[in-house]
């Protein structure tokens, strides 16, 4: 009961935030509200018993997305020009659409209904078989890493594509070696501000440590490659903000980041191909070891590492691509 009330409260806030994002003309404010929107969404996911998703939404939606948006805002504009009024036709069409969708909800299974079809088919099998087939407690990781590992492979390549896409688009006209790749040596971040510097330096190692914990604890608790990659990337971004772009790039040069992106994707695909070479199907981890259960565990750890490396490298490459570009 109390959960439902709390859920309704959070969802109402969510709607209000969404309206505010659309209405405000200051883009900076809109982006910050968007971050709040994501955080509220993450809280909602947590109430709905989706711990892994909540962690991901908080790290990626509220964290990384906001940073990328801010990076882009610094290069474009702070304010939106007033849109012309008289968009009532759009509003009307969309209201009808929303009404239609609300109408369709009345035949849907109610929230939390244990008899809903989604809880009858496929999902119970995962919950039953995971302890036997993989011997790991977190079913989400099992489904993500093995049962639907092919989707996750696709997802890694989506991130990979986003990374090369941003590098490709932003390198136009400047050349890869100049412009994009040379951060402003004058940028010193917050080095002269004592409080952020001290606190930040204190925090960065712990953030990275936490990221590693999330990475390797993913089989037992909420977490895994995506979350870990995003968290470690946030740690490095914090370092870049404190010490300036240049020193962050000294610590982790672009070539290393690109290598991470490529290496992670190759590691994942390589594990899949290894399964093929050892006589199984693509992404079949059971054949990796003599004991299929151990094989599954090894496979999942390896591909999660691949995911983490690629996500971390991609997000950092994207961040640097925006941050090092000079506004023109």
């Amino acid at each position: 009961m109390i959960e439902v009330v709390f859920g309704v409260f959070l969802l109402t806030l969510l709607v209000i935030t969404a309206v505010a994002v659309v209405r405000t003309e200051n883009l900076f404010v809109a982006v910050m509200l968007m971050s709040i929107f994501s955080l509220l969404m993450a809280a909602n996911f947590f109430i709905l018993d989706a711990a892994d998703v909540a962690l991901t939404e908080a790290a990626i939606g509220a964290g990384i997305t906001t940073v990328i948006f801010l990076g882009a805002l610094a290069l474009t504009a702070q304010r939106e020009k007033r849109s012309p009024n008289g968009r009532f036709a759009t509003l009307g069409v969309i209201s009808v659409l929303a009404a239609l969708m609300i109408w369709a909800t009345f035949d849907k299974p109610r929230l939390g209904d244990p008899d809903a079809p989604v809880h009858q088919h496929v999902a119970p099998w995962y919950l039953e078989q995971t302890p036997e087939l993989m011997g790991i407690p977190n079913v989400v990781t099992a489904v993500l890493g093995s049962f639907r590992g092919y989707d996750t492979l696709g997802e890694v390549f989506v991130v990979f594509a986003a990374c090369i896409g941003v590098l490709f688009v932003l390198s136009a006209g400047q050349g890869l070696d100049r412009g994009l790749f040379a951060p402003d040596p004058e940028s010193e971040g917050l080095r002269h501000h004592l409080i952020p510097k001290v606190v930040g330096r204190l925090l960065v190692p712990f953030i990275v440590l936490f990221g590693l914990y999330v990475q390797f604890h993913g089989e037992y608790g909420p977490g895994g490659g995506f979350q870990a990659g995003a968290i470690i990337a946030t740690g490095v971004i914090l370092y870049a903000l404190l010490e300036g772009e240049a020193s962050a790039l000294n610590a982790l040069p672009r070539s290393v980041l690109l290598g991470m992106v490529v290496g992670g994707a190759l590691l994942y695909t390589g594990v899949g191909v290894a399964g093929m070479l050892l006589g199984g199907n693509f992404l079949d981890y059971s054949v990796l070891m003599s004991d299929p259960v151990i094989g599954q565990q090894v496979g999942i750890v390896l591909i999660e590492a691949g995911v983490g490396i690629t996500v971390c490298g991609s997000l950092l490459s994207i961040f640097h691509a925006f941050a090092a570009r000079e506004a023109r």
Binding site: T56, E57, Y126, L127, D151, E155, V158, G165, V169, L170
Partner: peptide, 25 residues
Amino acid sequence: SNPLPQVLILTAIVVGVSMTAMGLA
């Protein structure tokens, strides 16, 4: 709770941020 939609949405969140990054570039 059902693990499958969670896995799907983990995927979709990452797809979302990829699209956003590309769009912003």
